[in-house]
C-alpha cells in the first residue's frame, strides 16, 4: 500500500476521496490522540484534500493540526 496521491484521489468521487484520506489519517491521528481520534479525523476531513495530502506526508503539520483540532473540540464541548 503506497502513499496516497492526488492522482489516485482524482479518480474517486468526492465522498470516496474523503473516505480514502480518512482511512490514512485515522491511524496517524490515533497515535497522537487515541481517545478522540474519530472526532478529530472527522474534523480534519473538513479541510481541503490538498492540505490533507500534505499532512499525510508531514508529521509536524499533522501534529499541529491535531493539536488545533483538540482545542476547537474542547472549546465546542465546553459550550454545551
Amino acid at each position: 500500500q503506497g502513499p496516497l496521491t492526488a492522482t489516485m484521489l482524482s479518480s474517486a468521487s468526492p465522498e470516496e476521496q474523503k473516505e480514502m484520506l480518512g482511512e490514512r489519517l485515522f491511524p496517524l491521528v490515533r497515535s497522537i490522540q487515541p481517545t478522540k481520534a474519530s472526532k478529530i479525523t472527522g474534523m480534519l476531513l473538513e479541510l481541503d484534500n490538498s492540505e490533507l495530502l500534505h499532512m499525510l506526508e508531514s508529521p509536524e503539520s499533522l501534529r499541529s493540526m491535531v493539536d488545533e483540532a483538540i482545542g476547537v473540540l474542547q472549546a465546542h464541548q465546553a459550550e454545551e
Binding site: K18, E19, E80
Partner: peptide, 26 residues
C-alpha cells in the same frame, strides 16, 4: 447556538462509509 451543533463533529470510523457533512436540517 443551534441544536444541530450537538452532532458536530461527525466521527470518522475506519471501514465504514464516510457520510461527511450532510446539511443538518430536520
Amino acid at each position: 447556538n443551534g441544536s444541530s451543533s450537538v452532532n458536530w463533529p461527525p466521527e470518522f470510523r475506519p471501514g465504514e462509509p464516510w457520510k461527511g457533512y450532510p446539511n443538518i436540517d430536520p
